[in-house]
């Protein structure tokens, strides 16, 4: 449904960040986008959702099509109306709004306003914790609860494609597992296609169908998850495994300098 073809993105008219990035999200699937800090994962998501301009970024080359329609250059509200919703890195809940008001804000582009209550119940179905917190200010929630809320806002928009930027960020491992199971469940029950950016490759690949590895502004490896899991280099660099078990950080790092994906 979504095709990114060879895009280049420049920040502040001079910093080239994406250097020919391509990827594809098929209908109904979960696609994981993995890569180290500064690889350009968030930039890729922002190019799709139209949030680039607000950050001083610009798409200078390539195309982004959604169901065959070119959507690069659309404003964020147009993109949301097309059915693509991005949950930004760092949760970004509205701190001075209550949980419920945050959810209403998530439904901003929906035309059928009388389904609001029903959709809120859908969110509470995935995240029962939020229901008990519904009238609390979002700024008072814990990191994990805020992440649930951030994803919940996405559910309220009823998107066809949900873009999630590091939902595991700053959250305890046990809760991360739970949140990713929720994401899988949303994908199944709502039929929402999902593109998820992650540093935590283990948990991302545990729910994804397909994965991309991003390095220095381009995708350097892509494969179905089963294949990625088998791949030696992915195991070592992203899943933290090797024959002798977990390698220490220093070893991994020195190896990384040598490696070439393409």
């Amino acid at each position: 449904m979504l095709h990114i073809n060879n895009i280049e993105v420049v920040y502040s008219k001079m910093i080239l960040v994406l250097k020919g990035m391509s990827l594809e999200v098929p209908e109904g699937k979960i696609v994981a986008l993995l890569g180290s800090n500064g690889a350009g994962k968030s930039t890729t998501l922002k190019s799709i959702s139209g949030l680039l301009a607000g950050d001083g970024g610009e798409l200078t080359k390539g195309s982004i099509t959604y169901h065959g329609e070119e959507i690069s250059g659309f404003s964020p509200d147009q993109i949301v109306q097309k059915g693509i919703f991005q949950s930004m890195e760092g949760r970004r809940v509205f701190k001075h709004l209550t949980v419920e008001e945050n959810l209403i804000a998530g439904a901003h582009t929906r035309k059928d306003r009388n389904h609001l209550k029903h959709d809120m119940e859908r969110v509470y179905h995935y995240f029962p914790k939020l229901k008990t917190l519904r009238s609390r200010h979002a700024g008072l929630l814990s990191g994990g609860e805020q992440q649930m809320l951030a994803i919940g806002r996405g559910i309220m928009a009823k998107p066809k494609l949900l873009l999630l930027d590091e939902p595991s960020l700053g959250i305890a491992p046990l809760l991360v597992k739970e949140i990713f199971q929720n994401i899988k469940q949303i994908n199944k029950e709502e039929g929402t296609s999902i593109l998820v950016v992650e540093q935590n490759a283990n948990v991302a690949l545990s729910i994804a169908d397909y994965g991309y590895i991003v390095e220095d502004g381009r995708s350097v490896l892509e494969a179905p998850v089963s294949e990625l899991m088998e791949n030696k280099e992915v195991q070592e660099h992203y899943l933290g495994m090797s024959d002798e078990g977990r390698k220490n950080y220093r070893e991994v790092k020195s190896y990384r300098k040598k490696k070439r994906w393409v």
């Binding site: 607000g54 964020p76 509200d77 930004m88 709004l97 008001e101």
Partner: peptide, 23 residues
């Protein structure tokens, strides 16, 4: 109101509000 909540959302976090599709 929908617009009232959107206005407060923009006041709170402009970028995040934009990502909700709020103009």
């Amino acid at each position: 109101s929908k617009m009232g909540i959107a206005m407060r959302a923009v006041a709170d976090d402009l970028q995040a509000a934009a990502s909700m599709g709020i103009s």
